[in-house]
Nucleic acid binder design. Structure first.
Length: 414
RNA sequence: GCGAUCGUAGCUCAGCUGGUUAGAGCAUCGGUUUGUGGUACCGAGGGUCGGGGGUUCAAGUCCCCUCGAUCGCCCCA
């Protein structure tokens, strides 16, 4: 623990059962993503700093104090991605994906945020991400939400998880509502916490979901967005909720749910669990119709979500441990060489097989047992001379002689 | 960035109000069994008690600093 170089704060070495859980989450995502027709894309881990600062919002905490920004040797300002969405919109423009709209894409990998680490919160962490670009239909929002719901279901973590849904309206709605909120909170200035006084300047919507009890009276009496929704914005939200009902996805309206990043419009949602303490948000996203434009592109409506792999992995049950089918136990140099050939044959036939690099028979049998293999193939000079091997069932202890030529078949039959 | 708790072997932990060479279980390695594992028994390795400084005759134990983890806030997936 104290010897040698230390792991950097907020990073993690993932191995053993934890790695299996992590991999199981990614595998489920890849499986479900195909069912919904989302294309797999790979994105760079860093972008020009402006890609994030212009889209996420200069005043957000993510941009103003959480980004890993550095100057490269050519003097350009680069930033390790703190999320996927901005980079995907950049790619949408650089790669000419306008041609392909509406485009459904999915990716996963590391993202970086300079935050104080906690359980389920790291400086280098991993996200799943799904986006639909160039679609203004509420059906796109619905498809993404049904996708998310199925993913959580297949991971077996819907227990205690609820989908909270809200609308932030279109640009017109959001501006009007925002002004009303600012006016309301200005008149309650004296009742607000210090944190919320700061939010009043930077991000007044954020006061609505404040946890500080001092803020609750003013937040609870604040005007709902519903009164400010334009007919269009209201119709849009109604179609989203109707679509969820049609697909059989449970949701609850949370009129106090807002998003931290500036680019969100219309649909905003979070799948929240009560099992992860303060890190309760497990998958979240919404519609960001203004983002591509903010990057200098044409008006491009889009929706998406991201989910923290570490948080999903903590909630998901442990997957079945990785085991092999058969272990080889050779005795003597000649047998070992023959076993190397046999090992390759078994693996080429799709059978998970393993053989230790050294050890006497007892050691090798212990290893075979510990590996979880159901069978062992024992190969010594006697067997080799007869063109046979001993096939042992490690559970029952039963052992039989099998001709080498029929060994692959015999193993497969068990 | 703010507040709080914690930090003893690979893992889980014990170590009373400071007192001789820091312990246990599990795991690892070796042996009882030179071609047969899972059980049992015997044995071994592994710790600068997170790191640094201080108080004291004496510090794993008390004080300060530092690093890290955890919980809450902030923020967010």
């Amino acid at each position: 623990m104290s010897k040698g170089p230390q792991r950097i704060r907020g990073t993690q070495d993932i191995w053993g059962e934890e790695a299996d859980r992590f991999q199981a989450v990614v595998a489920a995502f890849e499986r479900v993503r195909r069912l919904y027709g989302f294309q797999r894309i790979e994105m760079p881990a860093f972008e020009a700093t402006a890609v994030f600062s212009r889209s996420i919002g200069e005043t957000t905490d993510v941009v103003s104090k959480e980004m890993y920004t550095f100057e490269d040797r050519g003097g350009d300002s680069l930033t390790l991605r703190p999320e996927f969405t901005a980079g995907i919109c950049r790619a949408f423009l650089s790669e000419g994906w306008q041609q392909l709209a509406p485009l459904k894409v999915a990716t996963h990998g590391s993202v970086f945020r300079y935050e104080r680490p906690q359980k389920g919160r790291y400086r280098q962490f991993h996200q799943l991400d799904a986006e639909i670009l160039g679609a203004d239909s509420p059906a796109a929002d619905v498809e993404l939400l049904v996708f998310a719901d199925q993913l959580l279901n297949e991971l077996g973590i819907t227990d205690g998880v609820t989908l909270q849904l809200n609308t932030l309206g279109d640009a017109e709605t959001r501006d009007a509502w925002r002004s009303a909120l600012v006016a309301h909170f200005e008149s309650h200035r004296d009742d607000l916490s210090e944190d919320s006084l700061a939010r009043l300047d930077k991000n007044p919507l954020r006061i609505l979901d404040s946890k500080d009890p001092r803020d609750r009276p003013a937040a609870d009496s604040a005007p709902d967005i519903d009164a400010y929704l334009t007919d269009q914005a209201r119709a849009f939200f109604d179609k989203v909720t109707a679509g969820l009902d049609a697909a059989g996805v449970a949701w609850t309206r949370n009129a106090r749910l807002v998003r931290g990043l500036d680019y969100y419009r219309h649909t905003a949602f979070e799948f929240v669990t009560d099992r992860l303490g303060a890190q309760g948000t497990v998958l979240a996203g919404g519609r960001y119709d203004g983002l591509v434009e903010a990057l200098g592109g044409p008006h491009t409506p889009a929706v998406g979500w991201a989910a923290g792999i570490e948080r999903l992995a903590m909630l998901a049950g442990a997957p079945a441990p990785n085991t092999i089918d058969v272990a080889l136990v050779p005795m003597g140099d000649a047998a070992e060489m023959a076993a190397i050939g046999l090992l390759a044959q078994l693996r080429r036939a799709g059978i998970a097989a393993d053989m230790g690099y050294k050890g006497n028979m007892k050691k090798r049998m212990q290893r075979a047992n510990a590996s979880g293999a159901r069978q062992a193939i024992i190969l010594g000079d006697d067997e080799l001379a007869r063109g046979e091997a001993a096939l042992k069932d490690l559970e029952s202890g039963a052992q039989q002689s099998v001709p080498l030529s029929g060994l692959v078949e015999a193993v497969r039959r068990q």
